[in-house]
Every structure is written in structure tokens, then in C-alpha cells.
Design a protein around this nucleic acid. Structure first.
Lengths: 200, 200, 200, 200
DNA sequence: TATGAATGAGGATTCATTCAT
DNA sequence: AATGAATGAATCCTCATTCAT
């Protein structure tokens, strides 16, 4: 019996998270309604609130889950590896995320654009700390003459900006590219950009 | 009296546009309320609606005005000029806009992230046409061996993504940079990036 | 097994009655929720409704049980006894109830203040009849010159009002008395009051 | 125009306060709905909320207004006057309030029975202070041999309990008295009670 | 041009109750 | 006897918009 309940619970919670991601990533928190989420999840509104205490609880759970994965690729940069390869690898992982998880990217973008009211502390704490660490690694690479001189933080910004652009500005990208798959050219461009910038 | 009215009218319309920009750029269309706009504009809500028929009218007017200026820098690229200088100039103009008009950038970003329901036609029409033209220019530069081979559309995306990032993700950028002015390093980075990518 | 069930049943029914008393006496019928009662009873909400058909059923059962005991002290007044002693005894029994069963008193008070929708008939029937009887007894005592002349019904009201005040207005009483135990002084005061009023 | 507006505002605010008093005094805060108040006030629900920010705001305004008048009679007790006359006068003023403002009394009773969540501070502050003062006056009267020895606080409780009983337990009182006007006998009884208790 | 007043259509959340097991 | 799941009917409150002046 416990197993059955857990199954239903997990199924419905997953459905709600997925529905919430779809809705919140498009309309933002205040622009989304529980009705939309409920319908997307295939549940009644009160039943939605049986699983999550409130609209805010759904959104917060989504953000928390997102942040878990969001910082991961950055952690995988290996100070011992080849600098250009490491940074290319990071950029490619970010690009993959934009390709396969564009809604997560837009959810994050929405939150940041609106002032990051719920994750300001993560930005100033965990994220900043991580970026500081990676920046030190990059600075060391520069000092060792293994890549050209570059401001590490702006380098990171540029990787974020570029890769997330394909998810966040998807509509615009596709309006311009027509039927061409954005991610085909994106990867090559990204590599060229980084090589031009970094290779000694 | 007509003149007086006109003066007041212009003043109030401008106040509403400015207030609307402030509010909509932060909360998106559905996340914003007329009360917020009215208060920011220093007008009563009914008076607001005396100048603009509806909430939607304010937002639409803002978008229209934004698009006017949004495409302008792109048009200033001169096919006859020095390729790198032209593209650097364009990037700098975009960066200036992010620095001095971040709210406009965020308004645009909000609209695009949410699927661009009101400007899809502009994207697929005017914008795409312009990008096609510039792309031809860039392709010509490449063919003439004046810059390295590059996909012109992804190049443009990257300039957009990077420059707008400083406006749209302002909170995140500042969380990471602390007291350092983002735009100091941004310009140098942008130049390095483009030179590395383009210069033969 | 039947016996086991009965044991559990009685235990749970008692738990629900106690929980209901705690909740309803504080928040009134409409101000209370089944969730509150269920939590106080240590049962799940559906299980609560397995024992009592509805929220109303719990409340009604509580009121019925309350009324059983509520009128009892009045019945114990003995027409053959010493008038002052009998009335003092009654007052003390009521005061004891306020001290030891304040929740019952508040439940009753809540019901009466809100217009006694469920017990109007008891008030006009059983209660009135009882009061009429006692009033006759008191009138006889007066006629016999054993106590001073007094309106028997207002005398009864005053005993009710005063004794129940210590339960119903407990918060206020304690706010004023601070650490002093209200019931210490109450009993002496009550006796002085009745003696002053009744003793010939 | 300002006058017209003020007139409507005052009229509607007064209507809401009156409606709120009627509803809240019967059902308590949580047992009352804005619908009930709106209907009683003859206004639409949103219009209700145009005048008062929330249900709570109406209730709080009512309580505040009530407390203003509630303590007043106590302040009128004159230490220089004749002790019995002063206390009789106070009891009569309280009885008048029960007769003419029974809803206010019930609103207060509801709040106290439910634990006085919103006025606990008034009880422990202003009210307690006032009662302390009057108690000192009464103690002085006792010391001067002008009235019999009596606990002043319980004396005050008894006056409150008795007079408010006629408002708060109105339904019960009338069920017992039938067609007899409660306040006829109440005043005489109250006087007898106080004289028996106090007169030397 | 301006505003106080008013409202219909939502929108989040609560809650008593039912259903399935 | 017990509980997880589900829901219709409120219930408080918001908000874009209209009305009257």
C-alpha cells in the first residue's frame, strides 16, 4: 500500500513539477496561474495544492531543483586539464543544457531579470564562490602562459550569455535562422570564438 | 489652452511611458499591475487610462518605441568601412545601450522569453530582413579575406547575447563582480573576443 | 474482536470529543476546522469522519453532553434546606465547574452569543422549566421571610454571570489579576455578595 | 465635490462598520464572511474592500472603536463622590450599554472568549492600569469605613459579568423571562446586590 | 483633465466531505 | 478501522476597467 501511494505521489509530484516548469518558464511567477499549472499537470487545482502547499511552494521547489543542476557543469572544470579543452568542454555542456533543457534556462532567466528575489543569496554566496574559484584557475592558466590574457569573469559571462541565449531567445533565433537548427552552427561558432580568444 | 493641454499631455504620456518601462521591464506584462504603473507615474489609475486605453496599450506603445531604436545600431554598420572596426563599433553601441538603457533591454528580453506574442511578426519580418542584409555584408567581407571565416548570424547572436547579458542579468553580474563596474571589463573583453575571432 | 473494536471506538470517540471541545470552545463552530480537531485528536480527518458523520455531528454531540451536566447543579437545590446554604452551595458548584471545566463554559457561551441556533428549544423548554421551579422555591423562601425579597430569576442570572465570567473571560481576568489565582478571591466574594443580598 | 465624496465615503464607511458589527458580533471573526458584511452593508464585496483593505481591517477598526467607549464609564467614577452612588452609577452606565449596544458587548465577548488575540495588550496595559486605579479608590473607601470590606477587582468583575450578561446571553435571558423586559428587573436587582454588599 | 466610486472576472487558498483501498 | 487521494463549494482578495462627476 505504501508503495502504491508513493507511486501516485511521485507521479503527481513529477507531473506538477513538469507542468510548473512549462508554465513558470514561459510566464514568470506572477504571470502564471495555478489553473494553468493544474491543467498542464492534469490535476484539479485543489489536488495540486494537496501536493504543494502553495503556488510559491511549486515555484520554489522548481528553483531549488534547477540550482542543483545549474552549477554542476562549472564544478567539472579541471584545473589539471588542458585549459582550452576544459573551457570548450564547459561551454559545450552549457550549450547542451540550453538545447535539452531550455525551459530550465528560461525559468532561471525570468527569475534573474525580475531581480532574483528568491535566489539573491545563492548568487552572492555559492555562485560567486564557485566563480571565484574557477577564476583563480583561469588566472593561473594565464600566468602559466597556457592561454592568452583574459578577464576570467567576463569570459565566464560570455559563455553563459552565449549558450543561454539559444534557449532564452529561442523564438528570435529561430525567426532569424528559419529552418536551420541553431545548435548546429552554435557549437562551431562557440569553439571558434573560444579558440580565437584563448589559444596562444 | 490647447497648447497647455498638449504640454500636460506630453508630460503625462512621457511619465506613463517611463513608469511603464520601469514596471513592465521588471515584472513582465502579466506580472505588472496598473496600480504600480500609476503610482510610478504619479497619476491616478483612471487618469492613466485617460491617456492610454488599456494596460495593453501602454505595453504595446512601449514595445513599439523600443523596436524603433532597437534595430537602429544594426543599420549603422557600413559595408564600406573596415570590417573589424564596423563590428566593434556595433558591439560597442549595443553595450552602451545595455549600460544606459537596461530597462529597455529587459523589457525586450521579457517579451522574447515569453514567446514574443506581440512582436513575432517584427522578428520574422523586419529583424530577419536586416540580419539577412548584414549577414551578406559579413559574408562578403569573409569572401574578400578581410576577416576570418565566421557564421554571420551566430556572430550577431553572440554580440547580442553578450551585450544584453550585462543588462538582463545585471543582478547576477553584480553579485559576482561585487563593486567592480561591469562595463569597464566588458568593453575590453568584447574587443578581445571579436579581434580574436575576426582578425586575419 | 468486537470488544477490541469497542475499546478503540470508545477511546477514539472520547479523544474526538475532547479535541472538539478544545477547538470549538475557542473558535466557535464556524471558526473551527476539522483539521484542527483531527490534529488535536491525533486522528486523520477521514478517520474522524468515520466516527462522526460530520463536523456538525461532533459539535452537536458536544452540546448534548454539555447540557446533560449543565443543568444538574440547579436540580440539586433542595427546597427543604437552608435557603442561604442552598444558594451558596449552588453558586459554589457553578464556580467549581468554571474552574475545572472552563472549556465547557466557553462552548456554551459561544453557542449562546451566536444566538443559540441549536439549543433554543432546550433553553425555552427544559431550562426555563427548571428555572421556573427554582424560582418558585425561592419565592417561597422569600414569602416565608427566610431570605430578603429578591427577584429569583435575576438572582439566578447573577450567579450564572458571575461564575461563568471566570471561565469565559478568563484571559481578561488573568490580565487584571496577574499572578493571583482568580478562584481564590472569587469564592469569598461570591459568598459575601449572596449573604449581603439574601440574609435577613 | 470634496464634500460629496466625503459624504459618500462617510456614509459607506459607517454602513460597513454597522454591518460589520452586526455580523462579527454574532459569528465572531472567523465565522463571519465578507459576503455577509457586504450584503448587510448593501455594497458589493469589492466595493467593501475599496473602503477597508481587508476583512481584518474592518474587524480591527470595530474593535478599536469599541475599546474607545468601553473603558469610558470606568473613568467616570469619582473618588470624591459617595462610594455607593458612584458604584451604582457605574453599574447603571454599564447596564445601559448592554441595553443599547448589545452588539458591541457581544463583539467584545467573542474576542475575549477566543483568547483576545488582538487586544491582549490593551487588557494587560490600559485596562489593567485603569482597574488598578479604581481598585485603589475602592480600597480607600473601605479603609475609610465608607463601604464594607470587599475585594475591589472581584467587585468590578461582578459588575461587568452581570451587566454584560444581559447583552451577551440575551437569548437565554429572554427564553427564561418570556415577555418580561430583562432590563426592568436587572436594574433593581443590581442596586439591591450592590447595596447589600457595600452599605455599612 | 482628473478622480472617487464601483464592479465583473479572475486567482490563490481553505475546507468539509467523499472515494478508493 | 484507517488513510491517501481527490474535489466542489466557498472565501478572501486583486485587478483591469467603467461610471459619474
Amino acid at each position: 500500500m505504501a508503495k502504491t501511494d508513493t507511486r501516485i505521489q511521485k507521479k503527481n509530484q513529477a507531473a506538477i513539477m513538469d507542468a510548473g516548469l512549462a508554465v513558470f518558464s514561459q510566464f514568470g511567477f506572477r504571470g502564471s496561474t495555478l489553473d494553468q499549472v493544474a491543467e498542464a499537470a492534469g490535476l484539479s487545482k485543489p489536488n495540486l495544492l494537496y501536493y504543494f502547499r502553495s503556488k510559491d511552494a511549486i515555484y520554489t521547489a522548481l528553483l531549488a531543483k534547477l540550482l542543483e543542476n545549474w552549477l554542476e557543469p562549472l564544478r567539472e572544470i579541471n584545473a589539471e586539464g588542458d585549459p582550452v579543452q576544459e573551457l570548450l568542454g564547459y561551454a559545450n555542456r552549457k550549450l547542451d543544457m540550453s538545447q535539452h533543457y531550455p525551459r530550465e534556462s528560461r525559468l532561471f532567466a525570468n527569475e534573474i531579470i525580475q531581480g532574483a528575489p528568491r535566489i539573491a543569496d545563492v548568487l552572492q554566496g555559492e555562485l560567486r564562490g564557485l566563480v571565484d574559484e574557477i577564476s583563480q584557475v583561469i588566472n593561473d592558466w594565464v600566468a602559466a602562459g597556457r592561454i592568452k590574457s583574459v578577464d576570467p569573469r567576463h569570459l565566464i559571462f560570455s559563455i553563459w550569455a552565449l549558450t543561454q541565449h539559444y534557449a532564452d531567445f529561442d523564438v528570435q533565433v529561430r525567426a532569424i535562422l528559419g529552418d536551420v537548427d541553431p545548435f548546429d552552427g552554435a557549437q562551431a561558432y562557440l569553439e571558434a570564438m573560444l579558440r580565437g580568444l584563448l589559444e596562444v
